[in-house]
Amino acid sequence: MIALLFRDLRLAVRAGGGFGLGLAFFLLVAVIVPLGVGPEPATLARIAPGILWVGALLSCLLSLDRIFALDFEDGSLDLLATSPLPMEGAVAVKALAHWLVTGLPLVLAAPVLGVLLNLPLPGYPWLVISLALGTPALSIIGAFGAALTVGLKRGGLLMSLLVLPLYMPTLIFGAEVVKRGAAGMTVATPLALLAAITAGALALLPFAAAAAIRVNLR
């Protein structure tokens, strides 16, 4: 399992792995939105929590198809499926690798982009906390979507169509945490619900994703 994690990280970081693309996309979202809606600080401050969460979600979506598609194309997935690694474990590890190279940088970069979007000061800790709690759910839900579409040519668009509805509860609670945090309100309820979704998704979705991969390899 550890070996798989290190291999995936190594593949992501080396040339052609697409590491950092998600981060660049996140930055672009934070730049494009003010250009679209205008520079008034009050407007930006109001929409910043939502934009930051939507941006993080879209950047996550961008790199999902790499989780399994490359391994499927070069035959590694067949070989992994016949190896002693349980497929559920492989899915969880691959989602973890995806989070480490996509989700974690987003969490760390978010405060900087918060400045660009004029996020009110009390919102920063909650922005980081909510993304840290919520992006693992985005990775594992995305891994499930990638597993469903792994055998398909041009499955990327279909995967977005499948994954985005599944992202909605995470997005709602995540953005709500930041919104309330920025307004100085108590965040306990949405934060607990966000954590619950992440915990539930991490516990159950590897099984669904592994089942989907087995079906697709058949």
């Binding site: 190594r10 593949l11 080396r14 070069d74 035959g75 590694s76 992994l80 016949t82 002693p84």
Partner: peptide, 29 residues
């Protein structure tokens, strides 16, 4: 745990070295 399968496709990762490719499978097995 008796069967090792080698498909048409080798599952070789281009960005890893020969040793790294093998070391990965060695630790998986």
């Amino acid at each position: 745990d008796a069967v090792a399968y080698a498909a048409h496709a080798d599952g070789v990762k281009g960005t890893l070295s020969v040793t790294e490719n093998l070391a990965f499978w060695a630790s998986v097995f």
